[in-house]
Amino acid sequence: MEKFSKDWRNDIYDVFKNIGISLVSHIPDAGHTPLIDLCEKDNNIDVVTLTTEEEGVGLSCGAWAGGKKSALLMQSSGVGNCINALALPNICRIPFLTIVSMRGEWGEFIPWQVPMGLGTPKVLEAMDVKIFRVDYKDEVGDTVNAAANFAFNTRKSAAVLLSQKMIGAKQFKNG
């Protein structure tokens, strides 16, 4: 059954199109790859590959000042890179939306992913970012939609945390 259902990344892409997101920045994570591909194929979405996730915060804010809605895609480790940058949307009340693929929480193979995985919700809360967690594929679209509306309608920061259980833990094989 599963393989016939529409991929949940398509649901995120549909929300992006519905609310008019025209700029997507990212440091890739495997969980986001199909979504990045969809955005890259879309002539009306500008895709910017960053060198560190914090750049995506400033980029989004500058784009909003110029009239564009955007989203930052990153894995949970990237949230740690963004902490001080999050002061910018916070103090200027600039809408900021990020979609975070969680690592280090369910079936994780790499122990190095665990500290920031555990720290991600705490860090976001510390910087006044509202968290929208999603654990089930059929709730992805609604959750991203709610987060985007929260960000753009109330001029606040919102993070969607895509649970690792839902994404499926990446499998590593030695040799």
Binding site: V48, E54, G58, G62, W64, A65
Partner: peptide, 14 residues
């Protein structure tokens, strides 16, 4: 450190 990416976002949107 955020002024450079902010300026890039602004340049893209304007």
């Amino acid at each position: 450190g955020q002024a450079l990416p902010f300026a890039l976002g602004l340049s893209i949107s304007q």
